[in-house]
Nucleic acid binder design. Structure first.
Lengths: 182, 182
DNA sequence: AGCAGTATGACAACATGTTGTCAAGTTCAC
DNA sequence: GTGAACTTGACAACATGTTGTCATACTGCT
């Protein structure tokens, strides 16, 4: 949030401009996510739905009838949460479970007619927002930013600082072999 | 639907290519946020804390003793959630409420010695991650990406599509007057 | 001074994510 | 085939965010 490197609020270590820019990115990322989430909540609420529900609806609309576990894997979240959302969508008449020939215990979640309709309307609303925003951003910069975010995400996932700062054990620094992202 | 004529005078990109890059950014943003959140959860768990708790600890460490409402405003979240986190931090002995001369009902949350120590360790861990990541990213690109994220966040916040896509009422479309962000 | 409006904390209800556990279905090595 | 290992859904507990409501403290206008 403060774009200022802020000379170690708790007396950490000397400034590092490259690291500072990464921290700056992290704060910008958090803020942008929060705003995007809020906008998505507003958008979906206009159709009586929610952002997480739209995630499931869209997944099924795009990839076809899927099991709860498949959807969860695709989204990178725990399957228990998807199960709950799927049950709610079924209760709301937007989806139904259909027999899965490939797995007796794991039925396929498919959209009903109502589910397809609401999904189409929600995606249209999303598209409208993207079109409203797009003219104010340089497409090249946007694509570059997306590239940086992807690289940042992978780096952050691969860094796994040793848990034991309290133990004397000091591991050999995070090993990151990727190229520098420009 | 978008009042945007989207000038695509033969030769330029297809009508919604710019919008497509925005959608791409949105997905990259969601993914990067999810990964960063997971990394932060791991990092804070190593000190027996959590990402939301660190948010409060850092806020108080950086800005000094603050009321719950001040912290919530600063973070842009509901004060009820901060209240709960603050109570937990007090229970854990990391913070305490001190009388607020300016407001009888709204005490100041201040760090205890233990709170300062754990905050310092957590920020040091964050810094270590930033330093591990930084060499793999171009600082200029990172700063540009942060700029794009800030612009995206503000645009997304200011767009407020009319609730009634099916209602006859048609509002004058989102008014966005900002410059194009390069 | 007094009163209306706002800010704040407390409490409740809920949405959505997580982890953990368990039983039953599926897969794979042997 | 068979049995071990993995997958899956169901259920529970919890963390963290939200909104809503209420009583009280503070603020500002007249």
């Amino acid at each position: 949030m403060p774009r200022e490197p802020d000379p170690s609020p708790a007396g950490v270590a000397p400034p590092d401009s490259a690291a500072a820019s990464v921290v700056e990115l992290a704060w910008a990322l958090l803020d942008a996510y929060t705003r995007m989430k809020a906008a998505s909540d507003r958008l979906t609420a206009a159709e009586g739905q929610s952002t997480p529900r739209l995630g499931v609806l869209r997944e099924v609309a795009v990839h076809g009838p899927s099991t709860v576990a498949q959807i969860a894997r695709q989204r990178g979240v725990a399957r228990q949460g998807i199960q709950r959302l799927a049950d709610e969508l079924v209760d709301a008449g937007l989806a139904r479970f259909t027999p899965n020939p490939a797995h007796q215990r794991s039925p396929l979640l498919a959209l009903t007619r109502a589910g397809r309709d609401v999904t189409r309307r929600l995606l249209a609303r999303q598209d409208a927002v993207a079109r409203a925003i797009a003219p104010h951003l340089e497409p090249t910069s946007v694509r570059q930013a997306a590239d940086v975010l992807r690289a940042f995400g992978e780096l952050v996932s691969s860094v796994d600082l040793p848990g034991g700062m309290r133990g004397a054990r000091r591991r050999p620094a995070p090993r990151l072999t990727g190229r520098v992202v420009r």
